[in-house]
Design a protein around this nucleic acid. Structure first.
Lengths: 198, 198
DNA sequence: ACATGCATGATACGGGTGTACCAGAAGAAG
DNA sequence: CTTCTTCTGGTACACCCGTATCATGCATGT
């Protein structure tokens, strides 16, 4: 078989061009031609590696998810105590540095897409939020057993609330309503409130 | 002057057709022709009343904001104690009933638009979130002085956190991650936690 | 009664979109 | 060398978009 070029590398190159456009100008500007130009290849090549646009969109989305997961594992890896893990999980999503700004922005670009065609991406394995919520709840329980959190709290709904709050804070930052630092300050204030054992 | 038809009524009819499409199929499906068809008028009429598409989008957005504000005043009007006001403000935004589902969905459709062209709508008076946050903080302070909330809490960041959480919960509901009732349960749990005076 | 101006209809134009088709390089296999 | 498969380029097609243009009703002011 002819392996003149690395297929996977090509696909990665094109998909990341798509993500770059989605980050800068939004997904509606990510036409096949624009992606081809951004990746420095011909339109035909984009068609060749990803037959249809939907497949390109799906593939790029999977890569975006992998990037977020890698970033999160990197952040969690530096954490030691349960509280640090919780803080890492939550502040990792907040758009404070350029990388997270990029990821969050692109994620919300896709979010609008999934609203128009519900359950279009769930079919292709986007179960991350549920898993993340479970993991966060588990970490909260660990902190609870370590005596750092009031044992009366329901870790499940607390995790859900925190995740929703971080998500909402991210939206406000992306919308230019407040800076990433302000959002982080709001988050840490609520975490301080949570980790206060009376 | 010729007042054969009510101009404002026509504009309302067309703008609401736009909002209806944005709710059902997303803003990207709201072309001038689709709006005209949905409103039952000719394409030329849409052009006549709103010269350009941008103006139509802006006008419809203003009406959407007015609808949300009207709904919120309606909800707040039924509240008595500060805690009820706070609950009304927050649960009013949550997509639990059809009306709020519609408003929230359409709002997030516009949200993606504003990400692509930052400060495009802020110029046309969309200062609602800041005002709402201030109002919520003020209500929290009232509850604080009534002894219903720990006086040590910072009402400003608490208001910001709650609003962000409700926003995030709304996103999860729209994304099909959980039902409106579950989101409301999570919110009330956190409100119970907040309004607990030890 | 007629002219003026508002309100509406039909249609054309230029451009961008996703996809399909046809034609070659280029290296492996016979 | 030929043949065949993998890979790449150019281009055409049909469609939808926002906007502009031309034409016409039709009510009203004088």
């Amino acid at each position: 078989m002819t392996a003149k070029v690395d297929h996977e590398e090509r696909r990665r190159q094109i998909a990341e061009a798509l993500l770059r456009i989605a980050d800068t100008d939004g997904l509606q500007s990510a036409s096949m031609r624009a992606v081809a130009a951004e990746a420095g290849v011909s339109l035909r090549l984009v068609q060749y590696y990803f037959t249809t646009k939907e497949r390109l969109l799906l593939d790029a989305f999977a890569r975006l998810g992998a990037q977020l997961q890698a970033r999160m594992e990197r952040w969690i890896g530096e954490a030691r105590a349960p509280r640090e893990v919780v803080t890492a999980i939550l502040s990792c999503i907040l758009p404070t540095d350029p990388e997270s700004r990029r990821i969050t922005r692109t994620y919300t670009a896709y979010y609008t897409l999934v609203l128009g065609d519900p359950e279009a991406m769930e079919r292709h394995g986007a179960r991350q939020p549920e898993l993340l919520e479970g993991f966060l709840a588990q970490q909260l329980r660990a902190a609870q057993e370590a005596g750092e959190i009031d044992p009366g709290r329901d870790t499940g709904v607390t995790a859900a609330g925190l995740l929703a709050m971080v998500n909402g804070l991210g939206s406000s930052v992306l919308g230019g309503q407040r800076s990433g630092e302000e959002a982080l300050a709001i988050l840490t204030y609520h975490l301080d409130e949570l980790f206060r054992t009376p």
